[in-house]
Nucleic acid binder design. Structure first.
Lengths: 172, 172
DNA sequence: CCCCGGGATGATATGGTGTAACGCCGCAGC
DNA sequence: GCTGCGGCGTTACACCATATCATCCCGGGG
């Protein structure tokens, strides 16, 4: 990788935004300039990002931006499956690859799970059908009709776990 | 059930509180009067209840109560496995039956899942080992070391689903 | 007896998160 | 042109959570 660790390169980012815009159009929605700006900020962040952090960054381009500005954009992007909300963090992440999930046979409202490293804050999205099926089965067994499922696992990512082994004294 | 729909009867409530107090003592902790009052309010609520709603009720008994009062009590109760936090709602529920879960072989930090009815707000806790196992497996397969897992399913409870069928016009 | 340490609580202040409500503007369709 | 609608600006507010310092109580040691 030639870029930094702060996110994808500018070119890849714009390409992803163009793909997202095309996907929105295909669903009869429009990725306006504002929504595109917010999505770009979310995708550029290596970690989940809070709404007010987005707001601060957004004000560079739009001095008049206020909370509803960013929340409305985020609502739209969530409906389009372009970003997800991480409930445990009150924060938002770009969807790893909605198109890829379409290839797996899922719609834009695809099931997903988050792995949140409590040490470094990295958050990974996975898409495990066994988990989704187990949750849906358990819900239905209780007479419940599931609509949307949140699965968030807090723990240690491989890198942080390795560091913990190398210097256990720093953690205990 | 002979009681109302607003929660368990007073006698059953006090019995549960006594059991909780005994459990705390066994773990070397103390269910003080304040904590007992907060736990009673949580258990008496048929739905997840926000911290500030608890605070309002608590002020009937403790006029000087402030946010930290109730949050500290809630932190303690969560550590003891007597209440859970529902992330999607920023609210708290009493644990269905920590003792029952102990019988199932789980500690007081037992895995659990929530079924949240988006129509009536009812929230049920289930404890499905297949779900917990599937999530843990998926996380480990990604090189992740899980510590705590949140599973929350939003949908329709059986009662609300039946009502929706009976009067679909009211929903569309 | 006094002091001291720790846990629990009281009290104040502040920061972070999310939404309601109203109005304006631009555009498509009649 | 009027109207309806979606997107956005703007103000104000409600709700959620924590930091910080002070106080009280109680049991142990000197």
């Amino acid at each position: 990788m030639a870029g930094t660790t702060t996110g994808p390169g500018e070119a890849a980012l714009e390409a992803a935004l163009d793909r997202a815009a095309a996907g929105c159009l295909a669903r009869g929605a429009q990725l306006t300039e504002l929504r595109r700006q917010v999505l770009k900020l979310v995708l550029a962040s290596p970690h989940p990002v809070g709404a007010y952090a987005l707001l601060d960054q957004l004000r560079a381009a739009r001095p008049g931006a206020a909370p509803p500005t960013v929340y409305r954009a985020l609502d739209f992007l969530q409906e389009q499956g372009l970003v997800h909300r991480v409930e445990r963090l009150n924060a938002f992440v770009g969807c790893a690859g909605p198109e890829a999930h379409h290839h797996c046979g899922h719609g834009h409202d695809h099931p997903h799970q988050f792995l949140i490293c409590g040490s470094c804050g990295a958050t990974a999205e996975i898409c495990d059908d066994r988990v989704a099926a187990a949750v849906a089965d358990a819900a239905r067994a209780a007479g419940f009709f599931p609509v949307r499922t949140t699965v968030e696992v807090e723990g240690r990512c491989a890198a942080c776990a390795a560091m913990t082994q190398a210097a256990p004294a720093a953690v205990r």
